[in-house]
Amino acid sequence: MTRAYEKLARPRAFRKGELVLALRRPITGRHHDPKFAPNWEGPFIVDQVYDGGAYLLATENGEHPLPILNGRYLKKYYSQSQPPEHAKPQRHPEEDFIANWVEAHEGMTQLFSQQ
């Protein structure tokens, strides 16, 4: 079961300057929000990265409205207007293998067709 879980689980790691959303959760006490209040708040900028997956978030003004949060309570924020510059579409290893195989196969067919 551990191996099956680890195949699908992807670690979350954020870098300084990335935009993230923070989970709205009460630290203590009961919920006082309306019934259909959003579950996530933000976006925030990752201001500082600590060991062990803890992050300090800041607003655009440089304020720190939240305490240091664990990375499990954060998720990456994608702007609708423009994707971040460092975000590249990730390819699966199978896609890389197939692309490399196709290139090699085309090269081999060209080599043998010249003879």
Rank of each mutant, 00 (worst) to 15 (best):
T2L: 09
T2D: 13
R3D: 03
R3I: 09
Y5H: 03
Y5G: 00
E6L: 15
K7G: 00
K7R: 15
L8P: 01
L8N: 06
L8Q: 01
A9Y: 13
F14G: 01
K16A: 06
E18L: 10
E18D: 11
L19N: 03
L19E: 11
L21W: 08
L21Y: 08
A22C: 10
L23E: 10
R25W: 07
I27R: 13
T28L: 13
G29R: 03
G29T: 03
G29Y: 01
D33K: 14
P34Y: 01
P34D: 15
K35Y: 04
K35A: 09
F36M: 07
P38I: 10
W40M: 03
E41H: 09
G42M: 02
F44S: 05
I45T: 15
I45C: 10
I45D: 01
V46D: 09
V46T: 00
D47Q: 06
D47R: 09
V49N: 08
Y50T: 00
D51G: 14
D51L: 13
G52I: 06
G53P: 07
A54V: 00
Y55D: 06
Y55I: 01
L56V: 08
L57C: 03
G62Q: 12
G62T: 05
G62K: 02
E63H: 06
H64W: 07
P65C: 08
P67I: 09
P67A: 15
I68C: 13
I68Y: 02
L69W: 05
L69Y: 07
G71P: 02
G71D: 06
G71Y: 05
Y73S: 01
Y73G: 11
Y73P: 01
K75M: 11
K76A: 08
K76L: 09
Y77N: 04
Q80L: 11
S81D: 14
P84R: 06
A87G: 02
A87K: 12
R91K: 05
H92L: 08
H92C: 02
P93A: 12
P93R: 11
E94S: 07
E95A: 13
E95S: 11
F97H: 09
F97E: 15
F97C: 10
I98V: 15
A99Y: 11
W101Q: 12
W101A: 15
V102Y: 01
E103D: 15
H105G: 04
E106L: 02
E106N: 05
M108A: 15
M108E: 13
Q110C: 02
F112C: 03
S113Y: 04
S113M: 02
S113G: 03
S113A: 10
S113R: 08
Q115M: 00
